[in-house]
């Protein structure tokens, strides 16, 4: 636990050591706010629904930029050789890096608080869906990070890590979208919906917190973190 925290500390503050953190947060906030307020004053409804619909798409392209270097760079520069010969278990390293990225993304997400605050200024929005939506986004972010880390663990090239990470996230997200499920047979439609990131998000963004949905994200995250563990254990 203490060891995991040491790894976490380096990873987390590492984002702020480079420009990545500032660029990421700035661009993310600008995009999230732009897409939300673009329609907000036209629709004139006190809801964050559009924010929760668009943010998973923004995450899809942004989170792999956070995770792409996590293992690929260690591999390319050889720094992992020192890391893996430290008296630290592989799980501490995997989880330290994971939580470093997760807390960083969570902070970026938290900084969109100006949107619900604006809603509260303008009237009395239903806060259930807002809190549920944020929780759902947090869980989506965790899954994307685990997927992105996996992509980074199989290559020493950050660009490849980004593309593979984004591609897996995209696939898992898009499977549950209606334009896919509508074309599939009922069995496959149900199957796609069950394994898709987006279908589990719909109820959360409506403010319904279902343990099945949260369990799905937790499970997806765990599966990919385990794959990362397998990859780095093999020193691939």
């Amino acid at each position: 636990m203490k060891q995991m925290f040491n790894i976490f500390k380096r990873e987390f503050f590492g984002y702020f050591n480079s420009m990545i953190a500032y660029i990421f947060i700035t661009v993310f906030l600008v995009l999230a706010n732009f897409f939300f307020f673009k329609g907000f004053f036209i629709n004139n409804v006190l809801t964050m629904r559009s924010f929760f619909e668009i943010t998973p798409w923004i995450f899809l392209f942004f989170i792999p930029t956070v995770t792409m270097r996590l293992w690929a760079e260690e591999k390319r520069t050889g720094t992992r050789e020192i890391l893996f010969t430290m008296p630290v278990s592989e799980w501490d390293i995997v989880l330290g890096k994971f939580f470093g990225a997760l807390v960083f993304v969570a902070i970026a997400l938290f900084l969109t608080i100006n949107i619900p605050v604006t809603l509260l200024f303008l009237g009395r929005p239903d806060m259930g869906p807002v809190i549920g939506g944020y929780l759902g986004l947090f869980f989506i972010a965790a899954s994307y990070i685990a997927i992105g880390m996996f992509a980074s663990s199989i290559t020493s090239n950050q660009i490849i890590a980004y593309i593979i990470g984004a591609a897996i996230c995209f696939l898992l997200f898009v499977l549950g979208q209606s334009f896919v499920t509508i074309t599939a047979s009922p069995f496959w439609a149900r199957f796609f919906a069950a394994i898709s990131i987006s279908s589990h998000f719909d109820s959360i963004s409506r403010g319904v917190l279902d343990l099945v949905d949260l369990g799905y994200y937790a499970g997806l995250t765990a599966v990919f973190l385990f794959l990362v563990y397998v990859m780095i254990k093999k020193r691939v």
């Binding site: 380096r10 050889g78 010969t85």
Partner: peptide, 14 residues
């Protein structure tokens, strides 16, 4: 055991 790998790979940005 203390280990110095070939070419001393370090976290350059630190």
């Amino acid at each position: 055991v203390g280990y110095l790998p070939e070419n001393a790979p370090l976290y350059e940005e630190m």
